[in-house]
């Protein structure tokens, strides 16, 4: 199925948000995630299944003023 991650289309198999982050080798701790424009609390990463057409925003802190 296809999902949109940070504006890019990705093809994935059915999995949770947590599992998807693992496939990307991303440490979930310093992140914040929006699923379809709603904040996805960190506690829900392991229980939230990704679905066709889902839009994910995966952000973290970078240097800034």
């Amino acid at each position: 199925m296809k999902i949109i991650v940070n504006g890019e289309e990705k093809s994935i198999t059915g999995m949770t948000v947590f599992e998807y982050l693992q496939t990307l080798d991303i440490d979930p701790r310093p992140l914040a995630i929006e699923l379809n424009r709603e904040i996805l609390p960190k506690n829900n990463y392991k229980t939230t299944m990704l679905r066709e057409g889902d839009q994910l925003e995966v952000v973290w802190f970078v240097g800034g003023g």
């Binding site: 802190f61 970078v62 800034g64």
Partner: peptide, 13 residues
């Protein structure tokens, strides 16, 4: 200290 919020580059880890 101030920080900015930006997308994680998911292709370049």
């Amino acid at each position: 200290v101030t920080v900015a919020v930006r997308r994680v580059n998911i292709s370049d880890r």
